[in-house]
């Protein structure tokens, strides 16, 4: 099936309440992009041109509505001193946090995105992608939010204990992480793209609503205020259980909230559908990775029946980044199921 509109045309029409050929759809492709060009996952990290090539090729193959330049969650933390393990053909993960203990917090310096670690290559990838397909599809750069970056700088368990024992030290970490995020957001926007926010450690599976209000919200709000001041809208993804913080995600200024399969689109529509666009939430592992084409179709239809009538709209998406080995057939099936439903 062919689309009649480009993603940018579709987004514009959808925002203006005009007719669209189909709902926007974003199977959140991460390192699956490497598979599209037959590259190893580790090759994309630190090679802006190849990273762009992979994401442009993946977009052209599937025709989804948003390109997100992403390799892993740790790019900001790495640029601030965290050490990663970078397997040859799997997603990188945190090896050693930047800090041994909280006495070192004052030594942290906010990132310079044009110099530090792999950030310049991400900006290069953003630029190359915009050059190639920026006239037809929104291009975003994945940006990890302050509380999550703080967690990677200190170590997740240590930071979790500190939220109860040493809240002031957590705030210091969030503040310097915010400065890094602002610097990187500026650089992404200067290139002509928009940041796409992700804050997994702020999940209700990890911290309470009270701790979200104390440690996540103030920094998210400042980050989103800045992005808005540059004329860009904001999609905020938080994994796991989030129903108890949807109102706060909207209060922080998110224009679209991307929710995990642990949360319900129906409930989200009722609670915050009049304030924010919803994005979600086909199961990335059970359905997209392990399911059949028919499973994918059914899951997409369920999302659409639950929330296509949500007042601020719906972006059909996976609940989280797709696992690298997600079969192409299932990604095509997701797009086709949305196409088959038309503009609703």
């Amino acid at each position: 099936m062919k689309d009649k509109m480009t993603p940018l045309e579709r987004a514009k029409a959808y925002n203006q309440g005009k007719e669209i050929d189909r709902l926007p759809c974003v199977p959140i492709v991460g390192n699956t992009a490497a598979r599209v060009i037959g590259a190893k996952v580790c090759e994309l990290r630190g090679n802006g041109q190849l990273l762009a090539k992979a994401h442009v090729a993946a977009y052209r193959l599937f025709g989804y509505d948003n390109i997100r330049i992403f390799t892993d969650l740790y790019t900001l933390a790495e640029a601030m001193g965290a050490k990663l393990t970078v397997p040859a053909d799997e997603t990188a993960y945190l090896q050693t946090p930047a800090l041994k203990d909280e006495s070192e917090i004052d030594s942290l310096v906010p990132v310079n995105p044009h110099k530090d670690s792999s950030l310049p290559q991400f900006l290069e990838a953003t630029k190359c992608t915009l050059d190639a397909v920026g006239s037809e599809v929104p291009v975003t750069g994945a940006l990890t939010c302050p509380f999550t970056t703080a967690s990677f700088l200190m170590g997740t368990e240590k930071l979790a204990r500190m939220t109860l024992q040493k809240p002031e030290a957590v705030h210091k970490l969030c503040e310097v992480s915010l400065q890094s995020a602002l610097n990187y957001a500026k650089a992404i926007i200067d290139e002509g793209a928009a940041p796409s926010l992700t804050d997994p450690m702020s999940s209700g599976t990890v911290i309470s609503r009270k701790h979200f209000q104390i440690f996540s919200y103030p920094y998210l709000k400042k980050l989103i205020d800045y992005i808005h001041s540059r004329g860009k809208s904001v999609t905020l993804h938080i994994c796991g259980r989030t129903s108890h913080i949807w109102d706060l995600m909207a209060d922080a200024g998110a224009d679209c909230i991307s929710i995990d399969n642990e949360a319900s689109l129906t409930e989200a529509k009722e609670k915050v559908g009049s304030r924010v666009r919803l994005m979600g939430n086909v199961r990335p592992s059970e359905v997209m990775l392990d399911g059949t084409v028919d499973d994918v179709k059914k899951a997409v239809e369920q999302c659409i029946s639950q929330a296509a009538d949500s007042p601020k709209g719906l972006v059909v998406a996976s609940g989280c980044s797709l696992p690298t080995e997600t079969p192409f057939a299932n990604i095509h099936a997701m797009m086709d199921a949305v196409r088959a439903k038309g503009g609703i």
Partner: peptide
């Protein structure tokens, strides 16, 4: 029951 979260569980395990 969402009374405790990860930080509380860690402190319990300590």
């Amino acid at each position: 029951e969402e009374e405790y979260f990860i930080p509380e569980l860690l402190m319990c395990s300590d």
